[in-house]
Structures are given as structure tokens and as C-alpha cells.
Design a binder for these strands. Sequence first.
DNA 1: CCGCCGGAGAAAACCGGTTTTCTAGGCGTC
DNA 2: GACGCCTAGAAAACCGGTTTTCTCCGGCGG
Lengths: 356, 356
Amino acid sequence: MRDADAPLHPKQRSRLIDVANHAGVTKSVVSRVLNNDHTLSIREETRTRILDAVRDLGYQPHTGARALAGASTRALALLIPDLTNPVYSRITRGAVQQARVRGFAMLLAEDSADLSVDRQFADLVASHRVDGLLIASARPNHPLLGMLPDSRIPHVFVNRVVAGSGRNISLQIEAASQAALDHLLALGHRRIGHVSGPEQLAPTVSRRAGLLGAAVAAGIPEPSIESGEFNEQGGFAAATRLLADHPDLTAIYASTLNQAIGVLSAVHAAGLRIPEDISVISYDDLPLAGFLHPPLTAIAMPLMELGQAAVDALCAQLEGAPPEDVLVPGAPEVVVRGSTGPPRSGAPAGAAKVPS
Amino acid sequence: MRDADAPLHPKQRSRLIDVANHAGVTKSVVSRVLNNDHTLSIREETRTRILDAVRDLGYQPHTGARALAGASTRALALLIPDLTNPVYSRITRGAVQQARVRGFAMLLAEDSADLSVDRQFADLVASHRVDGLLIASARPNHPLLGMLPDSRIPHVFVNRVVAGSGRNISLQIEAASQAALDHLLALGHRRIGHVSGPEQLAPTVSRRAGLLGAAVAAGIPEPSIESGEFNEQGGFAAATRLLADHPDLTAIYASTLNQAIGVLSAVHAAGLRIPEDISVISYDDLPLAGFLHPPLTAIAMPLMELGQAAVDALCAQLEGAPPEDVLVPGAPEVVVRGSTGPPRSGAPAGAAKVPS
DNA sequence: CCGCCGGAGAAAACCGGTTTTCTAGGCGTC
DNA sequence: GACGCCTAGAAAACCGGTTTTCTCCGGCGG
């Protein structure tokens, strides 16, 4: 019987009802078995018969039908500011991987200013395309922020902090700044410059706050700060200003790896040597950092883990748990390479520069 | 009347039937109006009444229901080998943007070796999650290649060439290699090394073939070739071997920007100066290249356009057009920066160089 | 005056699941 | 032996669209 009614031609897709017929039960039973419905009582033998049929027919549920029937779409969407920024790439990788592990598909949207991404994201929700949102792009006053609280759509903020949302997934940014400063202090630096990011962005603020707080605690002069976009050009411009305005600096701490590359370039352009004249240290470590000239000392942050944690937190919400802020564990680690060394004079800031 | 039955509480989502009631017609009419069904005849006034209702209620169709009813999902999936590679980032950006323009959502999958991505991709198709596939990751013998021809699922290969598929979206890679060589020849180089990519990959082969063909045509010695992965470490290792085995090289052409960064690093590590001792030129140009030390001469390729063209080609298939190979227009452009210069001997190309 | 035709929209079937409700039979109990 | 209760599964309603078919009505030709 089983063999007889098994179609020799795979007949394209098999549906729930096909599985049911093949197993000699009704489709509701199959559905409930597949979804582990505890309120269903069923003989073990029937269950295995059903599962065998599922396997034999290569049954794959129709996502649309499932979503329509009120169940979940098993899809999430990720909104990131800049795909080409390797920091977001790693967050994305972690998120996509973890989504896959949990059986979710991941939709991607990039927050390039030209297109109204908030509209796009809202549409994803309104059209029931996704179960939840990962937002790595929340600037204050982002249009999305206005509409999210109303909609009941589960969401988390990744590497962003929206005050009071209780949905912030973040890294130990202050600790990272602290670690960076510790490294520089240990080398003897006291006059430090900081290349900061766009104002108002949570990571920008945290990094700066962590640095300033640690500087005060260490009793060194207040670090000089210049801001720039999170890319090479932004780092280049900010570092150029720092070097021009503060010739006594002996070290620069950059907010992102991309900025750090711009910083290296600016220092070279100023005719200074690294690390003899200026040490450079960066937030974010990636393999790339080891191949720069000189190899860049950087603070390794668990970016993939951040993406994974964000998915985990979002899934928890989907399962009914109340939203919760998450601080991704994993202490920042300073990866020491060639771009940091003792300050040039070996003496505290103010000593005349003596090129040797 | 209209105002009276308009719910004061936005009542969550509005469905097709709500729009229909609001406009005083049946839902089938609304559906057909929204989908531009030509077989429907309708008074202009009724049509505008319906469209007004759609706007008033902020109607957004339920993706699942639509997919279930046999229409399309309006979603595509992109499979890429490595999210953190900026080359793929730009392709991805172009694809996501263009998908958005055409009203499609984009799902993302990364072909990290650990998870069976072919399985994942097959599932996306089997579960009716997407209408089509963009595959930027086709290695020969990729498991996906075996299953694609059977399934009727529309797909294209991006920056990959699957012989006979008629679905290859590619760049003018040979021309790019030609341009790179021309640049080096104009500077006077004759002994050239090439850092190639993983064997069998279409871009690897094309780049190499373009270079070798152009070298033969120019009558210079056959370039020396070493292969490595498409990342910094791969470029570093390959360049290290090149420098050790062929001390007479005066220039190196790297297959990707990431490799080029490794090449720069290897040249520095060998104690050679760029470009005085060795010129370096790279395929792929990105902003990053301008901030390296020295700034890297590179061949700009239209990567975003590649991603966009891939989406366009896939959409054409969705609309019923037969698949078709596409060569993305836009001639490769050499962006000259500081990493290339005349060869160390200063001997012009015409002068017979006598290796000592 | 009647039948036919075409315009304008109504009705209904269907897509493939999920979930709630319903039922047939077997067993223990009084 | 009648009754009720479980067990194991059947039946049916429903989700929100798309698409095909059907109906109503007015006008026109014969």
C-alpha cells in the first residue's frame, strides 16, 4: 500500500495532506505531531509512521500558509547602517548564523540615507514578513523609534542604546576604553587624543565617557577629542585636526578600525613615525589590523557574539519573555601589535621633542 | 457613512476585506484593482474610491496570504561566501538596494563551511520563502549546483561562471587584468608577479587568463604566479613566496583588495620599499585603498552595479524571460595612487633589461 | 418585444497550513 | 449492563489573499 500510492514521479512539492494520506491519518494530526502539540495524544507507532512519511516525502511546510494560519513567519530582519563597514559585517555574520541555528531566515536592510528605510522596515512588519526586528542603526530621532513602541512587534537594539527601551544589546564599551587607556598608560603616555564618532550615537558616547572617566581616574590631562564619521576619511580628518592642534600628543585612540586606518594615514601624511612619534590604538580588532603598516594594536570586541546575543534576545521575546537589556560578556582584550610603543621623549608631556 | 464606520481605534491591521467594506465593493475587486488585472472592467470613480480606501486604512497585504494564494513572495535570497570581505559587501549592497527598488525583500545566507548552506538554501526554496536565488558562491562541485537545474527555481550566478547555465552575471575581469598590466607596462615593468586566488574559482581563472594573455601579447616574460585565499593572510603568504622565489620581480598584481593588503605587508616585512623596489597594484578599489601605506593603486570594478544587475536579471527571469548571461558594462578603471611607480632599475620598457 | 451582448462587479473556490471542537471505541466502575 | 471517562484521532473552521466563474443590468439590433 505504501509503495503503491507513493508517486514515482516526485510530483514537485508535497503538502501536509500528502503526508497525512501517506501515513493514513488526517492532516491535523500531522501538523500537531510536527509542532509538538502536547494536547494531542497519539500512539507511538502512529507518530513514527507520520515522521517516516514526512521524511519519505521530503515534506517542507509552506512558509506562507504557516504564517497565514497565525503561526510565526520564522524570519527576522536586520537593519544596519553600513554594509561595507567590517564591524557591522561581523555583527551581521553572527546574527545570520545564530538565526540559522534557531531556524530563522534573516532579511537584510541597509540604512543608507537615500531610501526611506524606516518605511521599508515598517512595511516588513506590516506585511507580516518577519517576526521581529534587529536594529543596529538607531540614531536618536530615527523615525523608526517613533513607531516601534506602538506596534507590538518584538525588537532589539544592537550596539545601540535607546534609553528606557529595555531592549539594548550592547558590549562593554566603557571597559574597552579603559583597557585601551591602561595599555597606553603602561607605556608611559599621558597626552592622548581620541578620534570619536558621530555625536549622539550610543557607542560614541560610551567610548568617550569610558575614556574620559578613566583619564580622570588616572590623573592624566584630559584627552583631546575630535569627531568624524565611522570611516577612513572620518578618521583621517579628525586625526589631522588633532595633530595640528595638539602637537604634544603622543598617542591616539580611534573609535573604529576604519577610522584607525585613516588615522594611520594622517599620521604618515604628517611625516610622523608610528609608534616612535605617535602611538595608535583602535577599538575593534579584525584580521585586517595585523596587516596594516605598522600592524595595528587594537581592542578585540566580541562582535559576532553581539550579533548572536541579539538574535537570542529577540527569540526570547518571541517566546514570550519580557524584553531585557543584555550586556554581552567577554572582557575586551588588547591585541598588542606594532602601532603602540613608549612615547617619544620618554618624559611626560611638555618635554621637547628630540628625534633620535 | 465613510466617517461613521471608520474605526476610531486603528484596530491593528486592516485586511483586504476591510478595504472592500470601506469602499463598498467586494474584496475580489480590490485585489484586482491593486494587481492591475486588465480583465477587470471598472468605473474610474470606483477605482479611485478603492484606492482612497487603501490609503485611508493604510492597507498592507499579508505576505503569507499572498504567497499562499499562488502569487509571488516578493523575496529573494543572496548566498555569499564571506560577509566580511568588502568586495562581497559591495555586491550585497547593490543587490539589496536594487531589490528594494523593485519591491523585493532580500534574505541573506553566508556560505561558511561549517553549516550546510546548500541545505539551507534548498529549504528556502522548498518552503516557498523566496521567488529566486542569487548565488555568489558557486564553486565547482558545490552541492547546490546539482540540485538547481532540477528545481524550476529562478536563479543567477553572481561573479561566478557556471558553464552552460546561461545565468552568469559577471564583470569584465579579463579587461581589468589587461588594464592592470597596461599600467605596469607603461611604467616600464617587465617582470611581474601575480597573487592569484583559490583554484577553479571563475574570477581567479579569468584574472589569471587575462593577465597571461596580455603578457604574451606584450611580449614580456611570463608572470610568476602564486595562489592564496581571498584574504589578507592569503595575499601575505603568496607574496612572501613570490618575493623569495623571484627576486627579479618589480611589480605584483593582487587578485583582491584584501590580498593586496597582505601583499603590502609582506613587501614591508621583506624590507623592500613600495614603489621604489616593488610596485603593487590590486584588483578591486574601495575607499580603504586610498588610506593604506602607501596608498594603493587599484582597478575600480563596478561591484554595486554587479549586484544590481544580478537582481535585474533575476527579476527578468521572474517575469518570464529566459535566463541570459550578463556582462556588466563599465570598463575597468585604474585608480593610480602611490603604490606603483617605475621599476627600480629605471630601465625603460624598450631597453633590453639584462637580469644580473 | 425579445434575445443577446458587454460592462461592472459579486460570489465562490482555492492555496496549505493551525487550532479548536467533535466523535468512536475501549475500559473501568458501580 | 449502563455510564462515564480516556484515548486516539477525525472534522471543520479559519487565516487573508488570488483567480475563475457567475450574475445583474442596461442598451442595442432585429
